[in-house]
Amino acid sequence: MFYAFGDIHGQMTQLDRALALIDADGGSDADLFFVGDLVDRGPDSRGVIQTIMNGQSAGRPWHCILGNHDLMFHQFVKTANVLHPQILSGKTWLHHRLGGVRTLASYMQGVELDHPDWISWDHANEHGLDPASDSLLAAFSDAAKDAVPAAHLDWIAALPSFIKAPHDHIFVHAGIRPNVAMEDQTQSDLIWIRDGWLDHTDQLDAMYVHGHTALDFPQHHGNRINIDGGAGYGRPLVPTLFDGTGWFTLDDRGRTPLRP
């Protein structure tokens, strides 16, 4: 038996509640998989990362893969990069809809979400204008380098892009390029893909469990399971589990079957 979470997006209060549900259902030694996107949008990305790191350090069997938001956060701190070609709208990681500023605020004292610099950034980005000066980017990147612990950055950098789990399950953040062997998948596909994946209805070589595309609630699609229930947009973080025979969601009332 194992448990899994969809995208958490900095929702520490939701994570605490969901972990308590799992402890009550399966105990503190339960195998647990996180499908990435730990950061951005929510108020406490730092707390989410530290909680998972602490659990792993304590010997709990917690497994985590890389999400695109985790990678964007890491790249900003390391290189000040905020532009990603996979974001077709052209919005930057610091745009309020992607939520990078909230991640920085969880690490850096004095980052005010209503600061004029960020309001100007959002306005410019919405209208296709030059969103900010290189000097502003450099200043915030330098501040982030000082504020974000190296241990957090090293941990993110070491996260795998997929994990094989028991009973022919594979955990991946976004999905795969169908009919391409796992060793030939690109990181970009594994953490960003939607086109050609979400509309793929043929059976696959394993049951793929993923997040990335937010739903109102986890959904079993027959050949894949999307467990991103939209916590990044204010919806509850829903624990899921596989008991060896089938999938379930978990809440205060117990288990509910999750079927195609």
Rank of each mutant, 00 (worst) to 15 (best):
F76M: 11
F5Q: 04
F5M: 10
D184N: 14
S106D: 00
F248D: 03
L94Q: 05
D252T: 12
S141I: 03
L215A: 05
V77H: 07
M1F: 10
V39N: 09
Y3L: 10
G175T: 08
D44H: 10
G234I: 08
T79R: 12
F140W: 15
D70K: 02
R97C: 01
G175Q: 11
N223A: 05
I156L: 15
G175N: 09
L204K: 02
H169V: 08
D122Q: 11
P61I: 10
P131C: 13
A231G: 07
M12W: 11
V111A: 04
Y107T: 06
P239E: 03
N226A: 14
L204T: 04
D202H: 13
K91S: 04
T245P: 05
L15H: 03
G229N: 11
W118M: 12
Y208N: 00
R102Q: 14
A158T: 04
L104K: 05
G6E: 03
D29M: 11
D199I: 08
R41S: 06
A58P: 10
D25G: 04
A147V: 01
A105K: 10
M72K: 02
R102S: 12
K78W: 04
I8G: 09
H167R: 09
H63V: 04
L137S: 12
N68G: 05
R17V: 11
W62T: 10
A151P: 07
T201A: 14
M12G: 04
G47T: 00
Q50M: 09
G27W: 01
D251V: 06
A158G: 12
G55S: 11
M12D: 08
T92D: 07
I225P: 13
D154M: 12
M207C: 15
L215H: 08
L204A: 02
F140Y: 15
D40M: 02
A151K: 13
M207P: 00
Q185R: 12
L83G: 09
Q86W: 14
W118I: 13
T256L: 08
F2R: 00
D228M: 06
D122W: 07
F2Q: 00
Q185D: 03
S188Y: 03
G128R: 00
Q86F: 11
I52Y: 04
A139V: 11
V35N: 06
L71Q: 14
Q219H: 14
L21C: 08
S135H: 14
D251P: 08
Q56S: 06
L190C: 13
N81A: 13
F34E: 00
Q86C: 10
H123M: 09
L241T: 07
T201F: 08
S57A: 15
G128K: 01
V111Q: 05
A18L: 06
G246E: 13
H84G: 02
I163Y: 01
A206V: 02
A174K: 05
A151Y: 05
